[in-house]
């Protein structure tokens, strides 16, 4: 008897608690930065595309909804010629983001992906690429890689000795 009354009392008290329900869509919920919503492609601090078209996101994707084609600019810098995500298949698992070695592909706190026409769920590179760095403001892959693709010279990257003079016999 007592426990029933106590339960009723606690339930009644909830009438004075702060509401969890919000009036979506007039009011937007707070979503943490690491919420896994819509996928974007970010740019590095220099404003260039971060994606190096390594195909790891496509390989990691359990529903195979990422498809891309690599190409290179005149300096040999590799980037995706096309990059397509079929959001009608995407399960927002975030494995692509985990696989990405350059922080290019990121899931952002935007879940509003409803469409009347399913074909509109297919996002091309122009829909995916944003102008900012996303969650990782500092990282620039090409400054740390060993390749010289117009971003830095050989031996000018982080943790690199200057290029070897192969004719030297010094130890």
């Amino acid at each position: 008897m007592f426990s029933i009354l106590r339960s009723l009392w606690y339930t009644f008290l909830h009438a004075f608690h702060k509401r969890e329900t919000i009036l979506y869509p007039e009011e937007k919920p707070y979503l943490p930065p690491r919420y896994r919503g819509r996928i974007i492609l970010s740019r590095d601090p220099d404003g260039e595309e971060r994606c190096v078209a390594c195909y790891l996101c496509a390989a990691a994707c359990p529903v195979d909804c990422i498809s891309l084609q690599a190409t290179e600019d005149k300096d040999g810098r590799r980037y995706p010629e096309t990059f397509r995500i079929n959001f009608s298949r995407c399960i927002f698992c975030g494995l692509c983001e985990e696989a990405c070695p350059t922080y290019a592909i990121q899931l952002i706190p935007d879940f509003e992906l409803s469409e009347y026409n399913r074909q509109n769920m297919v996002y091309e590179k122009e829909h995916l690429l944003i102008s900012g760095t996303g969650k990782y403001p500092e990282y620039n892959f090409y400054r740390n890689a060993g390749v010289d693709m117009g971003v830095k010279g050989k031996g000018e990257g982080g943790n690199e000795h200057p290029p070897v003079d192969i004719k030297s016999i010094m130890p």
Binding site: Y55, A58, A59, C61, V63, D64, C65, I66, S67, L68, R84, I85, N86, S88, R89, R118, Q119, M121, V122, E124
Partner: peptide, 15 residues
């Protein structure tokens, strides 16, 4: 078995 992009490679034509 790692072949990727099966559900996206032709999605520009038809989803």
């Amino acid at each position: 078995m790692r072949f990727s992009g099966r559900t996206a490679m032709n999605a520009q034509f038809s989803v």
